Amino acid sequence: MTAMFIIGTVVCAASTLICWIMTALRRHPADSSIISLAAIELFLFAYAGYAAVRQSGGASVTGEAWEFWGYVLTALILPIGVFIWAVLDKTRWSNLVMSLVGLVVFVMIYRLEEIWWGSAL
């Protein structure tokens, strides 16, 4: 396991937990849920930057580069799209939908690690 995967797992798990708690406690999108989405987005920017530096230094991914960067781009778009949706849907359930970002991004990070290193963790 790489340090970036571990950090991503912690960020995604914390975001999911925060959003689940806010689903139970709030009747509208909670600021803490939105901030947890921002934390995921910041992590993804750091991950993309790390990957870009690594690849520009000559290291390559084991899988297909287009697939790797497709996952990165999709993961970067996901929190933004869900944030926009949550702002438009001001119900309790927007917190629950925001929690799914943490779960989906975790799976995407796992897949990115498979593409990057060539095997499951």
Score class of each variant (00 low, 15 high):
residue 34 I to Q: 11
residue 33 S to M: 00
residue 103 L to G: 14
residue 80 I to A: 07
residue 111 R to L: 13
residue 95 N to H: 05
residue 27 R to T: 05
residue 40 I to K: 00
residue 89 D to V: 13
residue 105 V to G: 05
residue 27 R to V: 01
residue 100 L to F: 15
residue 90 K to M: 14
residue 22 M to T: 02
residue 100 L to Y: 11
residue 86 A to P: 08
residue 50 Y to M: 06
residue 35 I to W: 05
residue 98 M to E: 09
residue 50 Y to T: 14
residue 92 R to A: 09
residue 22 M to D: 12
residue 111 R to M: 11
residue 96 L to R: 03
residue 31 D to H: 07
residue 41 E to L: 04
residue 51 A to K: 01
residue 116 W to V: 06
residue 64 E to R: 09
residue 30 A to F: 01
residue 107 V to Y: 13
residue 48 A to K: 10
residue 58 G to D: 06
residue 61 V to M: 04
residue 109 I to A: 05
residue 82 V to C: 04
residue 119 S to Q: 12
residue 87 V to I: 13
residue 87 V to S: 06
residue 17 L to S: 12
residue 104 V to M: 08
residue 9 T to C: 14
residue 69 W to F: 09
residue 76 L to D: 09
residue 28 H to C: 07
residue 43 F to W: 00
residue 58 G to P: 07
residue 119 S to E: 10
residue 88 L to Q: 15
residue 80 I to Y: 04
residue 100 L to R: 07
residue 55 Q to V: 14
residue 97 V to E: 03
residue 49 G to K: 06
residue 75 A to E: 12
residue 111 R to H: 15
residue 102 G to Q: 12
residue 66 W to A: 08
residue 90 K to L: 14
residue 65 A to P: 09
residue 76 L to A: 15
residue 33 S to D: 00
residue 62 T to M: 15
residue 93 W to C: 04
residue 97 V to T: 10
residue 104 V to K: 05
residue 69 W to S: 03
residue 118 G to E: 04
residue 41 E to F: 02
residue 119 S to N: 09
residue 60 S to F: 10
residue 9 T to W: 14
residue 47 Y to W: 09
residue 88 L to W: 13
residue 47 Y to C: 08
residue 60 S to K: 08
residue 30 A to I: 01
residue 17 L to G: 05
residue 95 N to Y: 02
residue 26 R to V: 00
